[in-house]
Design a protein around this nucleic acid. Structure first.
Lengths: 231, 231
DNA sequence: GGACGTCAAGTGGTTGGACCATTGTACAAC
DNA sequence: GTTGTACAATGGTCCAACCACTTGACGTCC
């Protein structure tokens, strides 16, 4: 016979500190770039030790919520989700090999949506930036590192032209793929198919044609996906 | 004249500790649930103070990478991305009001993909679970809290049937929407349109029809989206 | 006046140690 | 067998000191 009874909720001072700091941000209407009080002041105000306060701040730092500068102070950061996603994602991949496939599938789905959204919102300036990156990509196609960097840069530029939060997620995925790629055999650069598809994607974006852009992005991401699953 | 010179990379012992723990997990091939050494042992092994090591562990705890139990020890956790995403996302929304709209747009895109993927993978057991939740939802439609909880539960069950990583992202979004909802005027429960759409979605899932499922999900999410943007 | 070095104050980074709170286990008491 | 007690192990919290970095003020040298 089990009665409906809730377990006692245990919270640490560090968790409470983070909550309090969240309330502080809300109540003071703080914006990205604004300074927070010093560690010593905050710990006194919250009536906890500096050690505990530091744990809270460190968490917020590593999550990209604040930016801590040695000798200078603590500032609120702006959009920076990817940082907080990529680290746990890396650990997840390391501890559960099934998750890598899930990640690639997720990437496929989200990159396609990303390019569709971008096609509806992209500006001429962003198109120009993409073309510049694309010409560089063609130049450095066979440079193992630079080629991949440029390809990633193109994807992220596209993503940013679409939805800001989705682009952060995509950046996190790229980061994880980069780490997982480093621990595998070296590729020889960027494939011809990849080059071609990126050209088509950018062309479709210029025409503000989401369906066409999606088609070529799908083709591109699926070719990567199949290259992984074959190994 | 600016030469190409890289700024010196400053790293803290805490960041290095996290890296070392990542390497430990990889090299020992640790799996979710496995115990890590005690704080005192780890700090000694890494040759840093217990305070610094605790900052590293705390970060990993709040990111959902490990689970720390007072008096017991530290274990490696499994899939738990949503925790690490929702907190920074909450701060982001608090500091940049534009981001709430971006979030709802993102949610629209990702929930639609989620249900499409689910339609291709969902099992009979999961269908059954969904039907159970749906009948409960109809019963508690006008219960402000329980109704919304049930609706969220349905979405998350669908998401989990699809892609595991995407479902974590969706759970994080739901968490943030819950927080932002708490600070707004109370709704009166779940709308009739929502009820109807969920019935259609589940029906489509049962028929393994991704396009139909996507259609109704889009209709549902857009009605929520438009309710927000009107306010 | 401008460039450079020196210094001091403020702030985060790190350490070591002490003590508290919780958990699990072993063992005695009943 | 159940209960209670004691103890060891482990994470939670605090404190005080000192190190490292940034900034700005000030003075010196040219």
């Amino acid at each position: 016979m089990q009665t409906q009874i809730k377990p006692i909720k245990k919270t640490t001072v560090v968790e409470q500190a983070i909550e309090s700091l969240y309330d502080l941000v809300r109540s003071q209407n703080l914006k990205p770039g604004d300074r927070l009080p010093t560690e010593r002041d905050l710990s006194e105000a919250l009536n906890i030790s500096r050690s505990s306060l530091r744990e809270a701040i460190r968490v917020m730092d590593m999550m990209g919520i604040v930016e801590v500068e040695h000798g200078h102070g603590i500032r609120l950061s702006g959009l920076n989700l990817s940082q907080s996603i990529s680290k746990p994602l890396n650990f997840l991949i390391a501890t559960d090999s099934n998750m890598l496939l899930e990640l690639y599938e997720f990437r496929k789905l989200i990159e396609v949506e990303s390019v569709k959204t971008a096609a509806l919102k992209i500006t001429d300036v962003e198109i120009k930036e993409l073309k510049k990156l694309y010409s560089e990509l063609k130049n450095y196609q066979h440079d193992r590192n630079l080629g991949i960097e440029l390809e990633i840069k193109i994807h992220e530029t596209i993503a940013k032209a679409g939805n800001k939060i989705m682009s952060e997620v995509i950046m996190a995925i790229h980061d994880v793929m980069k780490v997982s790629r480093e621990s595998t055999v070296a590729a020889v650069g960027v494939s011809d198919h990849t080059i071609k598809m990126h050209g088509k994607i950018i062309e479709a974006l210029e025409n503000r044609d989401p369906d066409s852009a999606a088609k070529y992005m799908l083709s591109h991401v699926e070719s990567v996906y199949s290259r992984i699953t074959e190994e």
